[in-house]
Design a binder for these strands. Structure first.
Lengths: 149, 149
DNA sequence: TGTGAAATTTAATGGCG
DNA sequence: CGCCATTAAATTTCACA
């Protein structure tokens, strides 16, 4: 089901996307709406499921995890489901996307160094064949919201 | 430069990762610390660059963008830099990672339907050869923080 | 670094256009 | 849907340990 938003909602999403800790009052000021109205809209966006979560972006390299890799996985016969059930054994995997194509899963991994990577690969082998690409840099864009408005 | 955090900081990161809109007072309650001390720690994490941003996760399918793809790009000779300079022309690209390997860039794209995808591919062709995988599902895990503590 | 307290600002609620 | 007014709660600032 598609949810229809207006300009206020798009502006709120745009503002929260850049700083989700702003107070309702401050968001309201930016979009010329009272704090009560702003709050109700934010809560509605959460209730509707448009906003899935208020999170935080972390620079893992500052925590001693200077190696980030994109891992593609080609699973053995029926190991896909088993792998998902055992995801908690792989704390270094931040997120997994199931995708179409030869490699049916792509995972973002946070590692301290190459020996950590070797260790991860060894633990993945039972499930399938991993292919590793080292992440050199990342650009996050937020034109999407501007584009909607 | 690596930054050393203690248990309080890791707990704060874990809590903020799940809900970045919690008040300092509430975070403080969860970790048995005063609101002033909690606030100072959060501000330090931001100042240190450990926290890059407080953001929001959005369910784009609810906004009419039901097709999410992972696009790998193999660039023509010198088009990589040109592409990055022109990223603003591609609002449907949420993030790009430069990676090692044959495909030197992998991008997350938000699209309304297959004709939107076709349009995107046409606009990408001048820069390089795109390979598209449709994203079927995604799992975000947050064992990473628990693992640190 | 952390705590506690006072002044200011927000959040939450309910009644009303 | 949004505004305003009221009460409760959180933030800010600062003195002190």
């Amino acid at each position: 089901m598609k949810i229809t938003l207006d300009q206020y909602d798009y502006k709120i999403l745009h503002i929260l996307n850049e700083n989700s800790r702003l107070s309702y009052a401050e968001i309201g000021r930016k979009i010329s709406l009272s704090q009560s109205a702003t709050k109700e809209r934010v809560l509605n966006l959460v209730e509707n499921g448009v906003i899935k979560q208020f999170g935080v972006e972390i620079d893992f390299s500052k925590l001693g995890y200077g190696l980030q890799v994109v891992m593609s996985l080609k699973f053995r016969n029926d190991e896909f489901k088993t792998f998902l059930d055992n995801l908690s054994k792989f704390p270094e995997i931040l997120s997994c996307k199931r995708i179409t194509g030869e490699y049916c899963l792509v995972a973002e991994c946070i590692l301290s160094d190459s020996s950590h990577l070797e260790n991860l690969i060894d633990r993945l082998i039972p499930y399938g064949v991993p292919t590793t690409s080292v992440q050199l840099s990342e650009v996050k864009v937020d034109n999407f919201f501007k584009h909607l408005m």
